[in-house]
Amino acid sequence: MSAADQARGSSDEEAIGRVLDGDTEAFSILVRRHGARVTRLGMSFFRDEEEAADFTQDVFVKAYTALASFKGRSLFSTWLLRIAYNTAINTKKRKREQYSLDPEIEIVGEPGTDEAHLREETARAVRGAMAELPPRQALCIELYFYYDLKYSEISEITGYPVNTIKSHVFRAKRILRERLGSIGEDRNEA
């Protein structure tokens, strides 16, 4: 079986089991499967490709060391993102840098069309909601809207209480609903 076949056919739990049984090479399945997510989070924090790559390496080495402590109570991806989040926060603290979010979102669709307008408004609403919050809390919104994570999973990753996350996401959705509502009204008037 090729490495690609293995990556497709083996679940995270199977790959972890193999690593814990001494098959170190099986760890590459997890790196391949979850690397982009971790790098993406790294880019959110560092806005620098080289730093994001170093960060990804760091996160996976930490995950390998701590792999035996993964008990499967949450998804492996959630567990890995928690390591990534803590690593990013600690790296930022060490460098005494402020975490700033400046998501640049590529809008797809014909410019000027309803679809492009809708996408632009959504990106603007999410960005607006994130800009209102302190950067670390803004990440909760990113984790919800971008990663499609549940409140409990975000809480597990960031350590914020579920109700805090819920209220931030609620506000962001309210803003989005109001903006999209006004688009709908504009269309009806036209």
Binding site: G35, A36, R37, T39, R40, M43, E49, A52, A53, T56, P103, I105, E106, I107, V108, E115, L118, R119, E121, T122, A123, V126, F145, Y146, D148, L176, L180
Partner: peptide, 22 residues
Amino acid sequence: AALVAFREDTRRADIRGAEAIL
């Protein structure tokens, strides 16, 4: 629909970017 579109847009751009970095 807006959230689905938002995820598609950001993922398409970011995953492509992240995979290139990797």
